[in-house]
Each structure stands twice: as C-alpha cells, then as structure tokens.
Design a protein around this nucleic acid. Structure first.
Lengths: 205, 205
DNA sequence: AAACAATCTTGACGCCGTCCAGATCGTGGC
DNA sequence: GCCACGATCTGGACGGCGTCAAGATTGTTT
C-alpha cells in the first residue's frame, strides 16, 4: 500500500510530516506574517515535537523557503488559468491582473516570496518556481509585442509595473486609511496594467 | 547649556539615547536585515541596558518604524536633490532614478519601509514621512503631464513602476546570480524609467 | 533642601531556534 | 522469524530574544 497516501493513525511516525508542516507554515504566515512565524508553532500545529521540523527543512529559513516556492507554484497556475487562450495585449492584461489578484488574496505569502530576508533565494526549488512564474510573463509579453523573444528591457518594465502595483496595493490595504479601502483594489490596478500594456506596445527605444 | 547637544560623558543618563538607538538600529538593519534586528543588540551598541530602548520606542516595532521613517526622510531629500530645477519628463526621469539609486544604496532600509510587517504603518511620523516622499513624485508627474494635479491612475502607475523596478533590482542583487550582478543595475533601471515616462506622457484612457 | 518626573538598571518570565543523545518505527538481509 | 540498520521523531538543554515590573539614579522644579 502507498505509504505516503494513507497516513498511519498515530504513533512515532507521522506519515507525511513535511507536507503537514508546509501546510501549517502557510497558514501561520497568513495569520501572523513572516515575522510572526515560528518553527515551534508549526510543530505544535502538526502535532509533533518542537525539533521535528529541523529534520526535514533544516532551519526556519528552509521551511519559509518552501512556503515561498509553493506561492510561486500557485501564482504560475493562476496566471495560466486566467490567461486561458488569450493572445496579444489581452493576454498581458490578464496575466497582470492575475498577478495582482494573487497578491491581494495572499498578501503575506507574496511578501514572503519577494521581500523576506528569511528565505534562501539561492535554493534550487525556489528558483525554479520563480522562473516558471516569470516565464508566464515572458510568454504574454512576447504575444503582445509579436516578437518571439521580447527584449530584456521590456520584460523588466512589465514585471516591475505589475509587481509594483501589487505590492503597493497590499501596502494600501495594510494601512488603516479608509480612503484606500473604500475603492476596489482590483479596479485600481486595472488602469495601471492598462498603462503598462500600452507602454509595452508603443515604446520605441 | 543645550542638554541634547553636548552629551554627558558617562553615567546613568545617556544624553540623547533615542538618537543613539536609532543610529544603532539603522546600522543593524543594514548589516542583518529586519529579521536580524534585535532590541538587545541595539542597546548593546548604544552602551545601555537591554530594556532601555523600550522606554523611548515602546517595543521593537516602534524602533523599526523610526528607522523606516528616517528612510523616507532620506529618500525625499535625495529625490529633491537629484531633480534640481528640472521640469517636464526630465524631472520625472530624475526622480525615478533617484528612487532606484536610494533603493540600491540602502536596500535593507527600503525593504523595511515598504515590506516589513514589523513597522507600524499607522504611525503618524511614519505616514507623514511617506507622504512627503510621495509628494515629490506627484510634483514630477504633474510637471510631466503639464496639468496642475495629475489623475490618480497616472500617479499609481508611475509609483508602481518606479517602486517595482527598485525592489526587483534589489532582489536580483540579493540572488547570487552572476548574470544579474555583471550589469550595472542603474543602467538597467534607466530603460524601465524611460518606458514609464513614455507611458505617463502618451497614455490616454 | 526636598520633592518630583524622567531616565536608566536589574531581574524575571516565557518563547524562540538550534543542537544532541536516545527512543521508536519501517524495511531489507539472513 | 529475526535481527540489524537507516530513517524518523522525541525530550532535554543551551543561549538569545522581547517584554514587564520594581528599584536606583539623575536633572529640575519648588
């Protein structure tokens, strides 16, 4: 019988502790942010001893890196899903909006993915996941410009604008300002993405 | 005699402990990032007891918030300085590059200013400092569009692109990738800012 | 000179990450 | 069948951390 699929009911061995720890860590990051995260609390939620996580993820940064990598996986999936079979500027618009939507629905994880000094940026799994997400953007920009491989400058610009509006909207939500919360953040992002698509299409060095 | 200017040589009272703590905290954030920061280490560097910072800044978040607010002060000053008396697109280009330059010269503090869950975003001093920096951008965008007060969408777009390229460049530097480090990051940013200025000038809803 | 508020120290508490030795479990060799 | 072995997890220890409370020290005011 598959060992990892059917977890043993209880006992010294857990069944699939790495998965359980990653889930717990994700939930904890969402609740308390990267700074509120703790290995011991993860272990508690997974029902194991405080030192168990270390055997699978090394240290706290290792587990957080896994959470960040999973975030990239979900981001990639959402961008693919939202793009559908769209091509041209519409593809880029959808990719951008999917990015913003992900950021607003999981702000703590997005902060972790890009702006935490606790994740190991050189981790192979993390890098692969990040590059896959970037690939979706590359594809959409290529479809917009009509060229097979868009130039680096255009890619950097598109990535910057989409990423920037996402993080700034998160920041706006984080502040108690009523003005920032009254409007629909997604609607605010739409204009920014539109300007970005416009520049990708019309800018000539 | 001015009490705060000439610190007492030694003794129970420090002279200007808040200032000394803020300086120590800034240095510590630069060395170890927001996650490596600790109140006790700050106190050690300022030569006071471990609990002294609490009397002036409340808790750890309070001191980090002060560091972030100072970051905004420096950012504002640098943008003003780099803009000089430029007007029009050139003003916006310079403001944007000043922003990137600040981010690259003080990455840990910029991360703290925007992406740390340990700073109190509702702190009055912090908000004022942030709005002052934003005001510099507003002024430059206004000068670019020719209108006295640019629309919110354009502002959001410009801020997003400039901020996004800054944080992504920081991320690139943080990763060990040799490819990212071989090129001059400021040169890479220039094209992005140029595209941003282009969109601010030419986009019509 | 005495009282007072501001400033700083000392000590304590619980939580944290990390290391280590040892207990328990699954599995393959005999 | 059983035994040895590696993988997995426990329990305890250590030092560092943030925060709180009580007390010592200082500058100022009365």
């Amino acid at each position: 019988m598959a060992r990892a699929v059917k977890p043993t009911k209880r006992g010294y061995h857990h069944g699939d502790l790495p998965e359980a720890l990653a889930k717990a860590a994700e939930a904890l990051v969402r609740e308390a942010g990267a700074s509120g995260f703790s290995l011991r609390e993860c272990a508690r939620r997974a029902g194991v001893a405080h030192s168990a996580p270390g055997h699978h993820f090394g240290d706290a940064g290792g587990l957080l890196t896994e959470v960040a990598a999973r975030g990239f996986d979900r981001l990639t999936a959402r961008m693919r899903e939202r793009r559908g079979d769209a091509e041209g500027p519409e593809a880029l618009q959808r990719i951008g909006m999917a990015y913003v939507d992900f950021a607003l629905s999981d702000p703590a994880v997005l902060q972790l993915m890009f702006h935490s000094d606790r994740v190991d940026c050189d981790n192979a799994r993390f890098k692969r996941a990040g590059e896959a997400a970037f690939g979706e953007l590359v594809s959409a920009v290529a479809s917009t410009t009509g060229r097979p491989s868009p130039d680096e400058g255009t890619l950097r610009f598109a990535w910057s604008a989409v990423h920037g509006v996402s993080t700034l909207l998160i920041n706006g939500q984080r502040q108690g300002a009523a003005a920032a919360r009254r409007a629909n953040p997604l609607a605010l992002a739409e204009g920014t993405i539109r300007r970005t698509v416009h520049a990708v299409r019309t800018f000539r060095g």
